[in-house]
Amino acid sequence: MKKQLRQRGGRAILYGTTRTRSDLFESLPDEIVIVILCKLTSTASSPADFVAVLLTCKRLKKLGMHPLVLSNAGSGVVSVTAKNWSDEAHRFLKLCVNAGNKEAYYTLGMIRFYCLQNRGSGASLMAKAAINSHAPALYSLALIQFNGSGGKKTDKDLRAAVALCARAAYLGHVDALRELGHCLQDGYGVRKDVEEGRRLLVQANACELASVLRAFNITQSQRPDLIESNGSPCRYGSGLPEKKLHPANRFLIEWFGLKGCGVPGPGLRLCSDGWCGRPETRRNEFRRCSGCGMVNYCSRGCQAHDWRVHHKIECAPMEEWNHAIDGVDEEQQVTDDRTVEIDEIESDEPLDSSL
């Protein structure tokens, strides 16, 4: 007997039986729907995409909150914004945390540690993400140890910070790789090895350039100054598109921007890299630029990025400003020592520590 299948107004007619599309959906087992939702949440670009799925029908709303679905949610789903922060958003992140989502661990940990000033809970959540090999969480914990964030200056643990940086660098975190290179160059928290440190710095520059080129699909014909004929990066360029901003950093930037004037508290400063958002947790926690003394950074990664994007043009020794005000010729007053110090900053050498 020949099978007959026709389509009429959204209805499938098979063997003389009419079944609507909704009936076909309802006949799917929950396990299959959950697998589909896991795929959708892992690739969603924003929370709105996830909410749109939940509002489709009651069944999707129920299954969308399944722990397996929430545990697979990507950074786009948990990327809440500061202006939309509410108790509901907090509860949703906690549901994702309870489901074991490492992106939620990290995002909520950063929010609690820096914005809500719940240091213990925030660090604990970031540690859970780090245990699951979350590179940004490992690097953030390393910066907390380097700076002694959330405590006193004497609470710094350089050896632990270097170990966390090494793990994050192994997982491909470029800023951690650069931080580790500087530590080896300076003997900061680890035995000094200048040659290995410089090798890691070169590797960090090459990795960052290669990742940006891949992300924006830039070819050798488009940028011959940056790419060799064999497709490998030839130098670290400053004319590349900006790196991708993590949702947790975007939240910090928006949060302190909404607080007014970007000031996290009395006498406290934000990291001068516009793509970071981390605030000081005590006065003079971050290190200042040894050239102009006008900007400060939470890490070498932020210093290197801001130098390439903005500060290289703006930075000038404080003596130059004083001499310019006094009407003195700058070229006659700037000493050779100061010129060397500026060159050191340009090559990502250590910044002076804040006193």
Rank of each mutant, 00 (worst) to 15 (best):
G257Y: 07
A89H: 12
W275N: 13
A130Y: 00
E254F: 02
M126Y: 01
E208C: 07
P350C: 00
F50Y: 15
T107W: 06
G327C: 02
F216C: 04
V328M: 08
D348R: 01
M1D: 15
L226E: 04
M294S: 14
C302Y: 04
Q117Y: 05
R191L: 03
A52R: 12
E320Y: 00
L258H: 13
Q333K: 12
N230A: 01
W307L: 13
R278D: 00
V35P: 01
P224D: 05
D225E: 14
A89V: 10
N249L: 09
Q4S: 14
Q203R: 13
I325R: 13
V295R: 06
H311E: 07
L270P: 05
W321M: 09
T41A: 14
C302Q: 06
Q333H: 09
K62L: 11
A135Q: 09
Y297M: 07
Y170S: 09
M65Y: 13
P233C: 03
S42G: 09
C298N: 03
L213H: 01
A248M: 07
G301Q: 10
W255H: 15
A137G: 03
R178T: 03
R283V: 12
L93A: 08
V194R: 07
E228A: 12
K243T: 11
V174Q: 06
G274E: 08
D326A: 15
D348S: 03
I32C: 14
T81R: 15
K102I: 02
S133K: 14
E179K: 02
L270T: 04
G187H: 00
N284C: 04
G181C: 00
I253M: 12
E208F: 05
C165A: 07
L268Y: 06
L201R: 03
T281H: 01
L14Y: 14
H182T: 04
G293S: 04
L226F: 11
G9Q: 13
R287E: 06
A324R: 13
N205Y: 02
A130G: 01
H310G: 05
Y114S: 03
R8A: 13
I227R: 02
R59Q: 05
P264W: 06
A137K: 03
H305N: 14
G237H: 08
N132D: 14
A82F: 09
T81S: 15
D337C: 04
S71Q: 15
A44G: 07
K192M: 07
P317T: 01
K153H: 04
G172F: 05
C234G: 05
S211P: 00
S121K: 11
I13V: 15
S124Y: 09
V340I: 08
G148N: 00
Q117T: 09
Q4V: 13
Q203H: 08
Q203G: 01
A206W: 02
E179W: 03
P247H: 13
S149P: 01
I34L: 10
H323Q: 09
E330H: 05
C96M: 14
G291K: 00
V340R: 10
D225C: 05
A104C: 07
A73R: 08
K83Q: 12
L180V: 00
H246T: 11
R214W: 02
V212A: 06
F25D: 04
P247E: 12
F25A: 10
A160L: 10
H66D: 15
A168L: 02
N98A: 15
V190Q: 02
E103M: 05
K62V: 11
V194Y: 04
A316I: 04
K312L: 05
F216D: 09
C165H: 02
N230F: 00
S211L: 10
M1E: 15
A168D: 03
D337T: 08
W321E: 11
V309T: 14
P47L: 08
